[in-house]
Amino acid sequence: MYDDAILQSVVVACPDCDLLNQVPELVPGDSAFCIRCNATLARNPKDGLERGLALTCTAAILFVVANVFPFLSFGMDGLVTHTTLVTGIVGLYNQGMVFVAAVVAVTIVIVPTLVLVGLMYLLFPLRSGRCLPGSELVIRWIIRMYAWNMVEVFMIGIVVAAVKLHTMAVLIPGLAAWSFMLLIFVFAWLSISVDVRVLWSRLEAAR
């Protein structure tokens, strides 16, 4: 479609060193870097919107599975516990670790949910060149929250906990564990497929 001319040639100040750079028109798949400090200034990912939307929907499905189904089943002396993410957070809360429980809830449940819902709110209408009210606010919040999505760190946590406990019990990874595993790749792919500069220029064109 109109992917080609989406980023016009523009002057930007480097976010890391403030040098003014002339960013040329980018063909899909190209990136521009600061000539002084090599910070990424803009990217125009191939099929940005379509791929971004497909990955957002995939991530949303995996994320629901990761939260609803048990991620580890734990058997010790005939007793089997199935654990979901929510059990862990509630367990911490019951032990009086309210702050830690809140941090885990924010970084593993709330932020990923808001980021995914926000992306859908932007990408679905933008695909057909439209935008919904409050889109500017949604992008600003996605940028602000992005660093606080820690799903991939949690996955490494599952692996470490499994190795820690394997001597004292039988551990069976559940459906949610595989979902978390896939989410690492989907989130990584998503963050290179969606570029905020592209979203801004699309949004300007849609208004």
Partner: peptide, 10 residues
Amino acid sequence: IFVVVIMVAL
């Protein structure tokens, strides 16, 4: 921290 959460849950 996440390892602790998972172990608390399990």
